[in-house]
Design a protein around this nucleic acid. Sequence first.
DNA 1: CATAATGGCCGAATTAAATTCAGCATCAAT
DNA 2: ATTGATGCTGAATTTAATTCGGCCATTATG
Lengths: 179, 179
Amino acid sequence: MDTETDDVQRNRQPAREVDPIDRKILGVLVDDATISYAELGERVGLSPPAAHERVKRLRRSGAIRATSAIIDPKAVKKPLLAFVHIDTRGWGKTPELMAISECPEVEEIHSVAGDTCMLLKVRTEDTRALEGLLSRIYETPGVVSTRSYVVLSTYLERPVQPDITAEWPAPRHMATPVY
Amino acid sequence: MDTETDDVQRNRQPAREVDPIDRKILGVLVDDATISYAELGERVGLSPPAAHERVKRLRRSGAIRATSAIIDPKAVKKPLLAFVHIDTRGWGKTPELMAISECPEVEEIHSVAGDTCMLLKVRTEDTRALEGLLSRIYETPGVVSTRSYVVLSTYLERPVQPDITAEWPAPRHMATPVY
DNA sequence: CATAATGGCCGAATTAAATTCAGCATCAAT
DNA sequence: ATTGATGCTGAATTTAATTCGGCCATTATG
């Protein structure tokens, strides 16, 4: 197993561009980070030490933020997923609101453009726990209202993918933008 | 590195309950799955082989779905995050709509209760690419309208956490539910 | 109640992988 | 052309994963 003792967050290099081989490596490791460097090297056309060197660099540069176990929510008794939109009075990102980061039920906190201020992704055991979390949110100063979208089924859920769609089909009926 | 050759998806055991030690293990591995079994064992109070045995079981049972590299979106040129709500005519989950799973920009697809049918989490290079993706969505039969929430800042984003808030503070002004 | 059977753990031993290192080739800048 | 830097390879070394036999506790069983 790769025991990386080097700094991961500090010492960001000036971010040498991620080349195509790096992208392939990322693609493989996003899919399964438990493979050996021998196998990784074989899949991207490098020797084990070279593959290792690349991965170390990707970690150091911060391109690979972490290597994590992905847990089945049901296995840890959190079958209920919801997205909570929060309207706030004034600026939404207050320390009081950020404090809910401590709840392990809260997985994401974003500020968004559009008609709401903050957007949360939360995962709870049941509707009762969701209610508890919402009441906790309502107690936060500045919170005006919330709208919750409870997920019925999840059809896709995966980490950030390294690939990018090269070209989008020219939208029909669309004028050519200036920029 | 842990070369797991066993089945991970098949052969789900009747899911022996995840005990407190398992939960600790999950907590550690969600945080950093690159540590050695020696270190893992030390953190949860087990010998290396015992820790290893536990992890193997968690994988076999599906509690650990995968071990993945978490990529910095900026490093792979995807700085723009958005949540797209899609209203559809009739049942939203059509094969045509599911086909967008192939876009590496699409990270999540959920069907939700509330005033929309589907909810997508997408990550693109820029607004142009988001427009391309939206036009792709609009081309899909049955799609009536979309609303996009573009993320300005992300304050928290992490994988499923194994912990659960034991007890929510009794919501003030709340009647006691029957169930 | 005794006793077998099971499951889970430990420590030691073995195997496999991570990691280091000494060249070697390539490319860019002097 | 020469120097320096970068990235690669294959061999060697160190470290970790994995296997295995035995022990203990708990539970099922005669």
